[in-house]
Computed example of a mutant assay.
Amino acid sequence: MPRSAIIADDHEIIRQGLRQALARLPDLQVVGEAANGLEAIRFVKTLRPTLLLLDLAMPFSKGIEVFSEARRWSPKTKIIVFTGLTAHGLAQQLAQAEVDGMVLKRGPIEDLLRAVNLVLAGGRYFAPELAAMLAEHSEPVPLTPREMQILSLLATGKSSGQIAQSINISRRTVENHRANIMRKVGVNSIAGLMSYAVREGLLETARQV
């Protein structure tokens, strides 16, 4: 029985290219294509694919949010992030959250196929540029995936109430997470959080939609 894959990217031409590339792997079948984050989460929840190829910057729900939700709804799904972003904070956060692979969009298609084969065999793959960056910035990232998700949403200008509604938790829980984030990164204002978000590449992710 062929293994299944979902492609999540908001650009149709990229999805077509990824589908054509994955067609080289005879035992892997693309069963869904998502043009935004909400579609990606829905596909993962209903189809529980073997593999999710995930863009980090998509409409409606950012890649870091989709990653967190995919892990929650389908823990056995392998996730390879396929991105044009190289902010070391995001790369570290995903690596710490045990993403299965990270591939750069500007890299050769062979990198993607190598990543897919390695990940499906039980390994992990990071594009050479990302692996070097992670080695250079090897200090531990203090935020959990949920805290990183909330910080990313705060960086887009959403209020605590809007964040609570968008990820189905209470406003008090959002505010508790925000207080923990501020304590961990050593700031005492929203402006300080925004500076941290810029430094870690979160605003760059939010803008590239």
Rank of each mutant, 00 (worst) to 15 (best):
74 S>T: 05
75 P>L: 02
75 P>Y: 10
76 K>F: 08
77 T>L: 08
79 I>P: 02
80 I>L: 07
81 V>I: 13
82 F>K: 00
85 L>I: 06
85 L>R: 04
86 T>G: 08
86 T>N: 11
87 A>P: 01
88 H>W: 14
88 H>I: 11
88 H>S: 10
89 G>K: 00
89 G>F: 02
90 L>K: 00
91 A>P: 12
96 Q>N: 10
97 A>N: 05
101 G>I: 00
101 G>S: 04
101 G>V: 02
102 M>W: 07
102 M>L: 15
104 L>A: 04
105 K>V: 01
105 K>C: 00
106 R>V: 11
107 G>D: 10
108 P>G: 06
109 I>N: 06
110 E>A: 06
110 E>G: 04
111 D>V: 03
114 R>F: 05
114 R>S: 12
115 A>N: 03
115 A>T: 09
116 V>P: 00
116 V>D: 01
117 N>Q: 15
119 V>E: 05
120 L>R: 03
120 L>G: 01
121 A>G: 14
123 G>Q: 08
123 G>W: 15
124 R>K: 12
124 R>P: 00
124 R>A: 08
125 Y>P: 00
125 Y>Q: 01
126 F>V: 03
126 F>G: 00
126 F>M: 11
126 F>R: 08
127 A>C: 06
128 P>M: 02
128 P>R: 07
128 P>A: 01
129 E>W: 04
129 E>Q: 09
129 E>A: 12
131 A>W: 02
132 A>G: 10
132 A>N: 12
133 M>N: 09
134 L>H: 02
136 E>R: 13
136 E>P: 01
136 E>C: 03
137 H>V: 01
137 H>F: 14
138 S>V: 12
138 S>L: 11
139 E>P: 10
141 V>N: 15
141 V>G: 12
141 V>E: 15
143 L>P: 02
143 L>A: 06
143 L>R: 04
143 L>E: 07
144 T>R: 02
144 T>L: 08
145 P>R: 09
146 R>I: 06
147 E>V: 03
148 M>A: 15
150 I>E: 09
150 I>K: 07
155 A>M: 06
156 T>N: 09
156 T>G: 04
157 G>N: 10
157 G>V: 11
158 K>E: 14
158 K>G: 06
160 S>L: 07
161 G>R: 12
161 G>H: 13
162 Q>G: 11
162 Q>E: 15
162 Q>C: 07
163 I>T: 03
164 A>W: 03
164 A>P: 12
165 Q>V: 04
165 Q>W: 12
167 I>E: 05
167 I>Y: 08
169 I>N: 10
169 I>V: 14
169 I>R: 09
170 S>D: 10
170 S>G: 13
